[in-house]
Design a protein around this nucleic acid. Structure first.
Length: 961
RNA sequence: GCGCGAGUGGCGGAAUUGGCAGACGCGCUGGACUUAGGAUCCAGUGGGGAAACCCGUGGGGGUUCGAGUCCCCCCUCGCGCACCA
């Protein structure tokens, strides 16, 4: 079946294949959806703005998937609707086109990724345009365009040139930090941390904390290191999954549980490598706090909170027996300090080597070597059994009085303690921590009780709040007593005591780690960084941006022997002439950074670029940013974030949205953007799934090999009955629906309508090909309402003699419903309301032209092509152009009130019948009318009325007995 | 294990602050128009029953005149996190 092929059909019937290309060409030619910027011709500053944005796609080789148009249709409907309501609408589209698939394809076929990327973009653009989305295509951007990524690099330089000032609570120029250090308002602690100079030397112990260094004591190089270590973009040695055979670093997900690469099954080594990091942890607090006012799905907010993982506790310093060393630990339960019976260091902890006694050295060395080799994934995935080894050393718990034997606890090494969280060391309280208890049980370590559960539960393994006991036990001497205190009070008391003694401090700890920002890849943004032997990493001057990605003819990573010690050589090392350059600072020899940025980089700020996509002087002009990004809620109050509505799948709930928020906050601190948040309202569309059919062996069978009969699906070749189940669409399950096919068979308007009609936008729902004709038929009926399919003239019903009041009433009801549903994004029920109207109008003998006109305006955002066509035909000589900016119809509430209403009558809570009463009927009238009803009387026959509940206009319930 | 969300006809899904469960669409049944129909139009369609009626929103309890909706317990499915001290 195809739109053109119905020979039986009248030539004047609804033909999407004629209508849709016509209007797409019209919109393009007239630039109907071009949005003017402030200062441009045609810009109307008196209109409020509406910025509605889709998660821009990665243009894959496979083309559009039916999942894409789901969100895109929703945003398009709203964009069209808001235009009709008089707002200036910013509705752009672009491409997140750097990334691995294009590069892998390049490696396999030796095609330049730029070529494949351009090809894929062209295909995507064509497919999207065929769906009639009202994007302002003049704003199209691609993250791979040097005119775009020059500003991605520019933002990176801002990160490089700023630090997070803890006192100010915001990013400040790195020069300010230098001034603070010079003036010794800040000094460097032994661990590199910066603290206020005034705090040093005033501690009750007198004297300066050992290891404290002042700016004037530092060499040139040391000073540079201190500065570099505090930039928002900095280089650090971090453990990565290094696969020498593939010549690249792998993400955790790309490593198997056996510690081998998923692709090729090569060995992967955990090793420290110098990588670019972004200091997102400095913003952890603000990223968490600012979630509250956002109009986002709670699930996404909670996932982000979870990811940031803020927890309150204390840092406590333990001594080491027979040594000057101390071990700092982080705990959320300082109230259980008396229950610490041993201590655990992460295998990577810097003190492991030093503390281990000769007798234990061999065992520890072996254990650490094993643990370090394992990937993080395999270390956490095999959580079944705890492993560890004793170092031979003992720690001293600071809460006990001097000479108290219980202060001495053994120090173990175990990989259940992670180096990446807290200090990489813990005090183990097996009495009240599940993991510690498991470990203690396994290795026969003592377990003591220090918390009494309030509900009389078993204390062993109790991790909740209770009352402190044995803290210290009777007869023992301790520096601080907690017995009898409720857990929160005990925490407070011990933390205060630790602070007073200089043995610890209250601390907020985050699970969030700094963002690993380097990739050993080709197809990404080059870093605007030059490495100089003398000056270290130096930023490329702004006027030399963009640092263009050099062309290569070989994208293959350099494969090495399976040797962990080989240095990675990203593909860019082959661009020898590009790599060698001069240091912008000293003019000496410099080498360009060989890594590229991860593909999250470009998507971190594209929403800003859409506001001003061709600006050559700045990522976005102040004016454009202020107009498009400063939002107001419906009640007029300023919105916390700029984009009015951001729609996409839930798969980016954490990373993309967190990274973009982070960049936005930095730009906010620097004064480049006006709002603290980028996206005021976020909406996640649900996943569209589809039936997948399998034969008896479980082999997936494609739709084109299936014979769909009344009683089920059968394989055509074998006649075997197949089992179907709704599953995620995937190539391997052979259940992928191609939107092109749907468009070919039913048209873009039907595809749009069907995707919106399937169910709530946020719900995951199955695609059912049999349901598509339903919405198609609706459009056909709408067509026949306007056009006589026999003659091609306007329907004879239009303007015919006959009453049209009922239609008018139905129309107002429809306007109300559609308007209200659009406001809350309930597209499915809005469509069913329009279907009801069309059904009623189809049945009517006469309908007025203005009534159909108003209906078409309602339909236009959903099915814009057919609406434009019918609008043109209906207006005839009055037609002046597209309906895209016609005013949205209004409804008269007075018309909606019925003069008489039907009310349900219940007897003992069960429906007994219905009665009709005048609209404003009072309780008495409702009651008497109900009691008089014959059916109702029959129900209550012979029984006494005990009580009558009347909700005027809704229901009467008669209680009898 | 922890967190979040969801269970309503043969199917997708509707149901204001608790107030006529099943809107709308698919499918199905019957009819009309037709050389024809996988088109269109009309009527019907939660289950049981000839009917009167009875039963029905995952299961069990509760609150209420009245519960898909509120409370408690349980089951199933989906998603996220998962040794974070």
């Amino acid at each position: 079946m195809s739109g053109q092929g119905w020979s039986w059909m009248s030539e004047h019937a609804y033909s999407f294949s004629a209508v849709e290309p016509k209007w797409q060409a019209y919109w393009k030619e007239k630039a109907t959806f071009r949005a003017a910027n402030p200062g441009e011709a045609g810009f109307d500053a008196s209109r409020a703005k509406y910025y509605v944005l889709d998660f821009f796609p990665y243009p894959s080789g496979a083309g559009l998937h039916v999942g894409h148009p789901e969100g895109y249709t929703a945003t398009d409907i709203l964009a069209r609707w808001e235009r009709m309501r008089g707002r200036n609408v910013l509705h752009p589209m672009g491409w997140d086109a750097f990334g691995l698939p294009a590069e892998q394809y390049a490696v396999e076929t030796n095609t330049h990724p730029r070529i494949t990327t351009e090809r894929n973009i062209a295909r995507f653009r064509e497919q999207l345009q065929r769906l009639g989305f009202s994007y302002d295509w003049s704003r199209e951007i691609s993250t791979t365009d040097p005119n775009y990524y020059r500003w991605t690099q520019w933002i990176f330089l801002q990160l490089f040139n700023h630090y997070y000032d803890a006192a100010e609570g915001k990013a400040m120029p790195i020069g300010v930090l230098e001034q603070h250090l010079e003036a010794e308002r800040l000094v460097v602690r032994f661990n590199g941390e910066l603290v206020a100079g005034s705090a040093i030397g005033f501690q009750q112990t007198g004297g300066i904390e050992p290891g404290t260094r002042f700016w004037h004591e530092l060499s040139e190089e040391e000073r540079r290191e201190v500065i570099d270590d505090h930039r928002l973009a900095y280089l650090a040695e971090v453990p990565v999954n290094w696969c020498p055979a593939l010549g690249t670093v792998l993400a955790n997900e790309e490593v198997t549980s056996e510690g081998r690469s998923e692709r090729g099954n090569h060995p992967v080594f955990r090793r420290p490598l110098k990588q670019w990091m972004l200091r997102i942890t400095a913003y952890a607090d603000r990223l968490e706090r600012d979630l509250d006012p956002l109009d986002w799905p709670e699930s996404v907010k909670s996932m982000q909170r979870n990811w940031i993982g803020r927890s309150h506790g204390a840092e406590v310093v333990f001594g080491v027996e027979g040594s000057d060393e101390t071990i700092g630990i982080f705990t959320t339960r300082p109230d259980t300090l008396f229950g610490a019976t041993y201590m655990v260091l992460a295998p990577e902890h810097s003190l492991v080597e030093q503390l281990t006694t000769d007798g234990q050295r061999e065992a520890v060395r072996k254990y650490v070597a094993e643990a370090v080799k394992k990937s993080e994934l395999s270390r956490t995935a095999e959580a079944k059994e705890k492993t560890g080894v004793f170092t031979g050393a003992y720690a001293l718990n600071p809460v006990w009085a001097e000479g108290e034997g219980r202060a001495r606890i053994p120090i173990w090494v175990a990989d259940y303690v992670l180096m990446g969280y807290g200090t990489g060391a813990i005090m183990a309280v097996p009495g009240h921590d599940t993991r510690d208890l498991e470990f203690a049980t396994q290795f026969g370590l003592p377990v003591v009780q220090v918390v009494q559960p309030s509900g009389g539960e078993e204390w062993r393994g109790f991790v909740g709040d209770g009352t402190a006991v044995n803290s210290p036990p009777a007869g023992a001497r301790a520096e601080c007593e907690l017995n009898g205190l409720a857990t929160p009070e005990a925490k407070k008391k011990i933390t205060g005591w630790l602070e007073g003694e200089g043995l610890g401090r209250g601390r907020v700890q985050y699970k969030l780690r700094d963002w690993l920002f380097s990739r050993q890849r080709y197809w990404g943004e080059p870093f605007p960084i030059i490495h100089c032997g003398k000056c270290g990493p130096v930023g490329v001057p702004e006027d030399q941006l963009p640092v263009q990605l050099p062309d290569l003819d070989n994208f293959q990573p350099t494969a090495q022997a399976d040797d962990a010690r080989t240095e990675p050589e990203p593909p860019l090392h082959r661009a020898k002439d590009w790599v060698r350059t001069t240091c912008p600072q000293c003019g000496g020899e410099g080498r360009r950074e060989l890594n590229t940025m991860p593909n999250w980089a470009g998507s971190c700020w594209y929403y800003l670029r859409f506001c001003d996509p061709t600006n050559r002087k700045a990522p976005v002009s102040k004016e454009a940013e202020k107009y498009w990004m400063v939002s107001h809620k419906r009640d007029g109050k300023p919105h916390f974030g700029g984009v009015d509505l951001y729609v996409g799948g839930a798969e980016h709930a954490v990373l993309h949205l967190l990274y973009a928020r982070f960049w936005h906050k930095v730009l906010f601190d620097l004064g480049y953007v006006s709002t603290p948040e980028p996206f005021g309202k976020l909406f996640n569309q649900g996943m569209i799934r589809a039936f997948a059919y399998r034969d008896a062996r479980g082999v997936p069978i494609g739709y084109d090999e299936i014979d769909f009969r009344e009683d089920g699906a059968y394989q055509r070749s074998s006649g075997e009955k197949l089992v179907g189940a709704v599953e995620k669409m995937s190539k391997s399950l052979k259940n992928v629906i191609n939107p092109d096919d749907v468009v070919k068979e039913y048209g873009a308007d039907s595809l749009r309508l069907y995707e919106m009609f399937m169910g709530p936008l946020e719900a995951s729902k199955p695609w059912n090909p049999r349901d598509v004709p339903g919405v198609f038929r609706f459009l056909q009926r709408a067509w026949r309402l306007v056009v006589d399919p026999e003659t091609g003239q306007l329907s004879v019903k239009i303007g015919a003699a006959g009453a049209t009041e009922a239609i008018e009433k139905a129309l107002h009801k429809t306007i109300k419903k559609v308007t209200e549903d659009l406001a809350i994004m309930q597209f499915n029920t809005a469509i069913s309301a329009m279907m009801e109207f069309v059904n009623e109008a189809t049945r009517a003998e006469a309908v007025r032209r203005d009534q159909l006109e108003r209906f078409l305006l309602l339909l236009a955002p959903f099915a814009p092509h057919i609406a434009e066509e019918l609008w043109q035909r209906l207006r005839g000589a009055d037609w002046t152009g597209s309906l895209a900016y016609e005013a949205w119809p209004s409804f008269d509430a007075a018309l909606l009130t019925e003069s008489e209403i039907e009310m349900a009558v219940q007897v003992n809570g069960k429906l007994a019948g219905t009665v009709r009463v005048p609209a404003g009927a009072n309780q008495e009238l409702c009651e008497s009318t109900a009691l008089r009803d014959a059916k109702v009387q029959a129900k209550m026959a012979g029984k006494q009325v005990r009580k009558v509940i009347v909700i005027a206009g809704k229901i009467v319930n008669i209680v009898v007995g």
